[in-house]
Design a protein around this nucleic acid. Structure first.
Length: 292
DNA sequence: CGATACACCTGTGTGC
DNA sequence: TGCACACAGGTGTATC
């Protein structure tokens, strides 16, 4: 689930709980996620104070005093759950200092405040690492990542340059994190629909008009999704401390067979396969130029 | 370089 | 109810 807006929502939800806090006991219940956690993972976190939380693409960055960065990727199914003292208490229970860990609770970080941050990830495609601030830019996972879509280095010119001379479909170019950081399967379809561009359009057939439309669409879609996440944050934290899932209404994603939500359009949303993954589009307003 | 397959995992929904 | 299968928001590697 987590693409850039969801990770940003997690960041915003965790920030007030983590910032300024000293980290206490770190419990790793399963070391092997997508990669093996480093052997010194716990040692490098325990006793350290959290400076601030950042995000790079789909990576959550927790910067610690002393110069290390705790890095998390949520993969497909990862979540961060905030447990305060009262969380997971059943009615009638008075005190439960250490509630039993859930089925896929892989990493549990206790804070000085008594709150606990639980990383839960059924599919275990997530990962964590700790690196020094200096090594962060050269980290193999971040090194080749493209610009932040909401920053000012992500421009139509940049996108167009990534497309020039390539036969590869525009959607696959968008999913490549080297093009732009943080776009996943949902927001790729959503942004292309907004920009009225067919997901199969070859990169070489992009032009500056399409690139400008797509850059704008990506920004709009991501910003709206972040707002939706922000508005649901309060509710989720009240409910169960569960960060990372929120309801956002999509225009085309997972809506095949439904009418295109564009007022003036009478098309019906289709699902196609690209690179083993589903894409959703309206064949009328996203028609391929010259295509069927 | 590109397209494709597959690998890593569990959970859920569907059809028989 | 059981079982097989398809599919799911990500990404890294291998192979043609």
């Amino acid at each position: 689930m987590p693409e850039l807006p969801e990770v940003e929502t997690v960041r915003r939800g965790l920030a007030p709980v983590l910032e300024g806090q000293r980290i206490g006991k770190v419990t790793v219940r399963r070391r092997k996620l997508r990669r093996e956690l480093p052997g010194d993972f716990e040692v490098r976190l325990e006793g350290r104070r959290v400076r601030c939380l950042d995000r790079r693409g789909k990576y959550l960055l927790v910067r610690l005093e002393g110069g290390d960065v705790w890095l998390t990727h949520l993969g497909m199914s990862g979540r961060m759950v905030i447990e305060t003292g009262a969380a997971r208490l059943k009615p009638g229970e008075f005190h439960h200092p250490s509630p039993a860990a859930g089925r896929h609770d892989h990493v549990i970080v206790r804070l000085e405040s008594g709150a606990r941050i639980v990383f839960n990830d059924p599919r275990r495609f997530g990962l964590m690492d700790v690196v020094s601030e200096e090594a962060l830019e050269d980290h193999p996972l971040l090194r080749d990542m493209g610009p932040e879509p909401l920053g000012n280095t992500f421009s139509p010119a940049h996108l167009l340059a990534r497309c020039q001379g390539r036969r590869r479909a525009i959607k696959e170019i968008l999913l490549d994190q080297k093009t732009v950081a943080g776009i996943g399967n949902i927001y790729a379809s959503e942004a292309l629909w907004r920009a009225r561009i067919h997901p199969m359009l070859p990169g070489a057939r992009m032009d500056s008009g399409k690139a400008a439309a797509l850059v704008g669409a990506i920004r709009d879609v991501l910003e709206e999704a972040i707002s939706a996440g922000g508005s649901s944050l309060r509710d989720y934290r009240k409910a169960d401390g569960n960060l990372g899932y929120f309801q956002h209404v999509f225009s085309v994603y997972d809506r095949d067979g439904e009418p295109c939500p564009r007022h003036e359009c009478s098309g019906k949303i289709e699902r196609i396969r690209q690179g083993g993954r589903s894409s959703f589009l309206c064949p009328l307003c996203q028609a391929l130029p010259g295509g069927p």
